[in-house]
Design a binder for these strands. Structure first.
Lengths: 194, 194
DNA sequence: CGAAACATACATTCATCATGTATGTAAACG
DNA sequence: CGTTTACATACATGATGAATGTATGTTTCG
């Protein structure tokens, strides 16, 4: 029988999704440097032609994977934030949610370890800032912080990410999580009024 | 005349220093992925044989470069710390010194961007912890912090590194530096007694 | 028919390994 | 004590395989 007559847009969309999905899995498992472009396209049931047609190459595909991942994380944090009316509690809730997300191995590997080296610090930060950082800035302001908020947001975010990395690599994650949350709270205590 | 009769140890030492020095320069300029092993050995006046004899390969040479750099940074911070008798002031002084060091482009590129991706997070952290982190833990304890000190040290260190990166990539570093130091102080205020 | 989507074949770069050569070191021997 | 012999260390060179990127062909849709 003839193949189903999909539109060009559908074909493209499906191929790109495939590449991003497969890339995400493999990059998360073994890291950017240890996954070949051949392996990705093979696992996606495609060839190099498709990859170089839609993206400029392996690096651009990685950027797409990273942006896709970030968008997903932001959406989850925003959803968690929206459910809490108290702004100060919302901040802590959002950080807790983000902590959980950053503990996932794929997030650690792709977003926190490989992305800055592969894409360069500036591009990495540009993508990160466009996504998660904006949410944190809003949350800090809503919680009553007024001075140096953008800078503070970055420092807090890096401490949160560090905490997530600590938890992710600790032999007893539950214990590490408790300790990290105490330490984070102690740090934030100096900022929040009340 | 006969070549100067150097001992094997001297020859090795000289070669390794050369490789590490050249590697550090090139890695700092263009990043690990964009420097070939051939280029390094050529610039060092050697061949691949030397590299593979002394180090396992490009990656191991990078590790050596990174450790060398870290040792240098730690020594400078310790020197700065020793000059200040007041323990609480010493902490701030040490952080300031570290902030300056982390603003150097070679430190940003090698120690903060490439190292975690090339060596893996665990090995990167092991080296970092063995060097600078120990100093920070001691300084925090000496300044009066008692609870969760190792964890807090990591969070603080990540915030400091973040501040350094912010400064390094800001169009007006002086302004960024002032703002980052205010923000850091605000964070630390919650920890330090008095 | 023309353009977009994808496949295939080829060129190039690069890390690594296997092997060869020279230099230094130390022990055996006279 | 000097020399030779045996060995280890330091380095060079050529081959190999893997991986990326490019150029060109083929199919599918509008």
């Amino acid at each position: 029988m003839p193949p189903p007559r999909r539109s060009q847009q559908d074909r493209s969309q499906a191929t790109r999704s495939q590449l991003v999905a497969v890339g995400r899995t493999l990059f998360a498992e073994r890291g950017y440097a240890h996954v070949s472009a051949d392996e990705i396209v093979a696992a996606a049931g495609l060839t190099r032609g498709a990859l170089y047609h839609h993206y400029g190459g392996k690096e651009e595909l990685f950027a797409a994977v990273f942006e896709n991942l970030e968008a997903e994380l932001t959406a989850e944090v925003v959803a968690a934030l929206g459910a809490e009316p108290d702004r100060s509690a919302a901040l802590r809730l959002g950080l807790g949610t983000f902590l959980d997300l950053c503990s996932r191995p794929d997030v650690v590997r792709i977003a926190l370890t490989d992305a800055p080296a592969v894409l360069g610090w500036e591009r990495w930060r540009a993508i990160e800032a466009a996504q998660g950082l904006g949410v944190l800035v809003d949350a800090l302001r809503a919680a009553g912080v007024e001075r140096d908020v953008p800078t503070l947001a970055r420092l807090v975010l890096s401490a949160v990410i560090e905490a997530a990395l600590l938890i992710a690599h600790h032999p007893q994650p539950e214990q590490a999580r408790a300790e990290a949350e105490r330490a984070l709270t102690a740090l934030l205590a100096g900022l929040l009024p009340g």
